[in-house]
Amino acid sequence: MHELSIAYHLVEIAAQAAQSAHVKQVDALHLRLGALSGVVKEALLFSYEIATAGTVLEGSRLVIEEIPVALHCPACAVTSVLDTIQVFRCPICGQPSNDIRQGRELEVVSLEIADEQPTYS
């Protein structure tokens, strides 16, 4: 299981971005997770709490958008979304294809920032 190490990587990236933007508290981290990323959603969610402890992301939610594989078929000239990662064939004509256009994503998309009271000094 390498999801804990993945969780630490994503927290590092997010914490860096939060710091540069002078963010004190994060509500949620949005992540795009491809079906072929090699990362298991449940294991990542479990690891997230551990990885965020003591960081600006502590207590935040991890919101995962699952990205299915999209396969391009040269014969049909169509890119189709697959509902499996076990058969790489065009769902229209049945031809095998290796032209994967989507599904390897493992990307930090954005942070949802907690509302803060305006500060006056």
């Binding site: 939060a18 493992l106 920032i113």
Partner: peptide
Amino acid sequence: MNNPRILEIRRGVLEKN
């Protein structure tokens, strides 16, 4: 000053590797 609600990042988690 209020912080923006959404902070865009768009970076690959394994980009360093």
